[in-house]
């Protein structure tokens, strides 16, 4: 059923799949790594370092 559904897809269905794929590629291969990286993962090696950083932020921010 799935195979038949995909192979007989109308222009609308194909257009929507193209939009979904382009969107996901843009989100996960451009936006996420280049413009929206995880701040803690990028700057700290392990959970202890991350915890120390956040603790420092919480204590020093006032």
């Amino acid at each position: 059923m799935f195979w038949e559904g995909f192979t007989n897809m109308t222009t609308l269905g194909k257009t929507l799949w193209i939009i979904v794929i382009i969107k996901l590629i843009f989100m996960f291969f451009i936006l996420k790594p280049l413009f929206s990286p995880n701040y803690l993962n990028k700057n700290f090696k392990n959970d202890q370092d991350k915890a120390n950083h956040v603790r420092k932020e919480l204590i020093d921010k006032p």
């Binding site: 609308l12 929507l16 979904v20 969107k23 989100m27 936006l31 929206s36 995880n38 701040y39 956040v54």
Partner: peptide
């Protein structure tokens, strides 16, 4: 419904990206 679903799906993930990038103290906390 299908059009709206296909175009809109995963747009919520952008919000999750922001938790990790812009709101990292919050995310950890």
């Amino acid at each position: 419904f299908g059009i709206n679903f296909a175009v809109g799906v995963a747009t919520g993930l952008i919000l999750e990206f922001q938790f990790g990038t812009n709101w990292s103290n919050y995310s950890w906390f």
